[in-house]
Nucleic acid binder design. Sequence first.
DNA 1: AAGTCCCGCCATGCA
DNA 2: TGCATGGCGGGACTT
Length: 388
Amino acid sequence: MSDLPPENPNLSLTSSSSSLHHSYSRKQKSLGLLCTNFLALYNRHGIETIGLDDAASKLGVERRRIYDIVNVLESVGVLTKRAKNQYTWKGFSAIPAALKELQEEGAKDTFHRFYTNENVKVSDDEDDEEESSSQPLSSSQTDTSKPVSLPQSSDPSKIDNRRDKSLGLLTQNFIKLFVCSEARIISLDEAAKLLLGDAHNTSIMRTKVRRLYDIANVLSSMNLIEKTHNLDSRKPAFKWLGYNGEPTFTLSSDLMQAESKKRVFGTDLTNVSVKRSRTHESATERRIKMKQQAIADSSYNQSSDDAHESRGYEFGPFAPAAGGTYPAARLEDNSKRAFDVENLVSEYRPSYQNQVLKDLFAHYMDAWKSWYSEVTQNNPLPDTSKRH
DNA sequence: AAGTCCCGCCATGCA
DNA sequence: TGCATGGCGGGACTT
């Protein structure tokens, strides 16, 4: 139990050198693989509670990594926090409901509840997040449309709760992007942009994208999304697969051995000497430099970098999973889609009261338009408003 | 103090 | 090379 985490036995953080071992591969330590192992370990009958320490030692990683996984799993309903160090296993069967809830929640406020000053509610924002089962609870506290943006605008209050930036919330918003729109393929860059409310300095974007990588990895290992490319731009992106039944997981061979051997795995392939040599000063220096640079080019009104680039996502039929607010349209049925979107427009436009949302909406329309014209080209459709 | 986990530096991997 | 990825752990925030 208290087998200490593998950690680095002894290592010289200095140097670079050394013997690098042959077999170190970051792939073997990826969050995605770790998640797969985690799932293989706990997604079985009889499991009802999961202890973080137990998981960490069984998987041979630090708790920090377990948090990464658990946080996103929880945001999809697979787990529920019970107490310190303790989670309740809900299983994959809880996913559909969770997705549905996210969809409804997202549809209701078009991805987020933005706060018009009259209904903010900064202070008491939620308390008990999800809890799918019983009641919907749609108080998706603030989130995505973080006020921020304008560097110097006066922020009413520091709506910057830690929770607002949590991996869990970000996961849910990322999922809403798929489930509440017609986008089927979205690149992490685009996702970050959308979730950030557009126009942001590189530093913030970079960090957001970094988080999205973590999320994408675990969602991928759950088969909720899959990596692909944008049809046109070729840029890597993720495709929403939705919940299609419970996938099967298998422990990676080494873990298996470790398990059967009753021994902590991981220790061996930990990249001891590879540790990055964080030369304090250079790191700090760099950080400062980046900060300044960030500030420098954060001119929020960069009219130049948004607008276009709408090729971030691809549209497609709606996810099979939870039936929801929007009808599942067929790709071929262009006219219907046109109709749907237009409906969507008139239905939602009125609610866009803040700039951020407006931009976001415009962004989507833009993307849709280009997609539309593209499709229309090879497959001219009769008339926009006549179904077939 | 212990538990959480945000953040972003910088190494890897792969065209 | 350059860009996409993502390991990793410092240290801030919560309990």
